[in-house]
Design a protein around this nucleic acid. Sequence first.
RNA 1: GUGGGUAUAGCUCAGUUGGUCAGAGCGUCAGGUUGUGGCCCUGAAGGCCGUGGGUUCGAGCCCCAUUACUCACCCCA
Length: 419
Amino acid sequence: MIKKPRGTIDILPEEMPFWHFIEKTARDTAALYGFEEIRFPTFESTELFTRGVGDTTDVVQKEMYTFRDRENRSLTLRPEGTASVARSLVENGRCSGTMPIKLYYLINCFRYEKPQAGRSREFYQFGCELYGASSASSDATVISLADTLIRRLGIKGARLHVNSIGCPTCRAAYRTALQEYFRSHTEELCETCRTRLETNPLRILDCKSPVCTGIANGAPKTIDYLCEECAAHMTLLQSSLDAMGIAYTVDPKIVRGLDYYTRTVFEFISPMIGAQSTILGGGRYDGLTKDIGGPALCGVGFAAGITRLVLAMKESGVEIEDSHAPALYIASMGEQASIRAAAICARLREQGLTAEYDLIGRSLKAQMKYADKIGARYTLMLGENELQTGTAQLKNMQTGTQTEIDPGDTDTLITALYE
RNA sequence: GUGGGUAUAGCUCAGUUGGUCAGAGCGUCAGGUUGUGGCCCUGAAGGCCGUGGGUUCGAGCCCCAUUACUCACCCCA
């Protein structure tokens, strides 16, 4: 038997109501904030990600699906959407003009990781990007959009964590302070963190090992080392969030593993869906368009993992009603009746009524069972007798009551179905 | 990339110290008198017990390997 590749998922019909609901809510919410949809290639030049996401990140170093095409070009299945959107704006000459630019996307992404709860190799994201505004209010707007989405989805217990990692200048100062602090605890740190001390001390804050977490708790905080502008930005953002009534906690341990982030970073965390608890994450990326060779254009945005949203919704007890139940099922017996049933169904469908009839040649009893199973509201019984007499039984499947009806009279049938 | 757990019918799972152990429930299909659903009853189909080795007179049960699934680390959404 041929199986699907490791880390991929089948989304079966019974799951679809959740997906449709999330996609619709995401589109509606984005539109509410004036965001427009954008679509872009599933694969891009590998260089876009090495330069945009950063070639020292785990995502680029060991998680990309990179391949050569027939002309030996290096291409990569997108591991995320932000770099592509930036590329698209630059390539289509949208870096100047009416600002801000507000875009959203619903895409699949690919990362070669070991699958676990809430993580697969092909996964789905809803993302929003706001370009051309450097104000803290644009950060607040994007966070507000995310907050609205999560509330509309009925997700309970998700908490917003916010932090500022500063701009390149204040980050250098912070980095030095951090190294100084952790050097005094070198002995206690775990092995990987001892390496991180030199390569990327910011990552130590992210370490899950209890010892490192303990040490990290006493570490200097980015917010205390921000330059004047970055500090003001953070203060303004907090004021905006307060004013909008969006609850948050300033969490110095939110660091983010993608190189393009500057200043504001944030995550919505749902504690009930397993270890991969970040259901939505994002931040500001003011240097991205320049990094990929375009003009400078600041931006802020986020992405949400749809599979994780589904998990969080289920944990929150959200139920989605799926009403695809047909208005009418025609139980047909015999060839002539079957042909007649096809005609009636076709006419009903033209009127926008869902209708079905037997396609398998089952007995009447079996057809009744089937009609019950698919939740048909009415069943029309059609056999040789009915074709001759011109009267057929229309059964209300909820009450069980039957009424006589002329199967040739579609109008009467339709009015009966609406009763 | 590193660990832990699990692999028996479509699904959820039983299978006692290796010797009628190939099972149950659900689902599917067919019946329960002549053309009528939901409850109930009866019956049927459906598994080389993940795969490949090994130990043994004998393995679903023991050992090794392998693959997949799963959870966690790492990282991220």
